[in-house]
Nucleic acid binder design. Sequence first.
DNA 1: TCAGACGGTTTGCAGTACAAACTAGTCTGC
DNA 2: GCAGACTAGTTTGTACTGCAAACCGTCTGA
Lengths: 105, 105
Amino acid sequence: MTDEPEHIARRFLSLDRMVHEPARLAIMTVLAEAEEVEFRFLEAVTGLTKGNISSHAAKLEVAGYISVRKEFRGKVPVTSYSLTAHGREALASYRANLRATMEPG
Amino acid sequence: MTDEPEHIARRFLSLDRMVHEPARLAIMTVLAEAEEVEFRFLEAVTGLTKGNISSHAAKLEVAGYISVRKEFRGKVPVTSYSLTAHGREALASYRANLRATMEPG
DNA sequence: TCAGACGGTTTGCAGTACAAACTAGTCTGC
DNA sequence: GCAGACTAGTTTGTACTGCAAACCGTCTGA
């Protein structure tokens, strides 16, 4: 096992699991297209349940990939999310990695 | 919730989880390049442990995505895997789906 | 004969995604 | 002013899953 061939297949194994999860990929993709996005908008656009958005967003926040802003609009609470620089980078390199596996086909 | 916009993000949510798992993606990718592949070869090429290859292959077999052939070469058992037509199709449509999400970037 | 290698499989555990249930507060009708 | 419905999310419970360590049967070499 000294000098194994560098096969494309190995790239898959080093994909960032935080990004790889479809629900989070959906969320991050939406966030990548806008400066800031509200909870309700994410809900409508992705079709995810509130629970899923909430818990995935929490993980993305812990990972430092998104930032969360909570404010009151009039009397109602509104939660907004945005990608951090770190998150934007993570998404970009995830995509680059994935693209690399698809080059020839 | 009558007529939500069809956002790209939703595509991620319909990705085939059987294929989406990195270890299986690695395995299927290798299988896609050859008619038939032996256990040991998969092990060397992907870097996965025997346990992982064994259990992921079992799932892929149940899903009908690969077929498993066991034979004796002399006295030693050899397990070989190959993609089924169904598996090849699944991989192709997975890739097509994913590619669709990356079009603009 | 018996220690170790070979070729895999099974098991145990730790982590995860998911939706249902819940919380906290606002608005509406009466 | 109070019951009930709605809004905006969070927490909880469960069922699943990926992972590597432990295991199994067989073979080989000393």
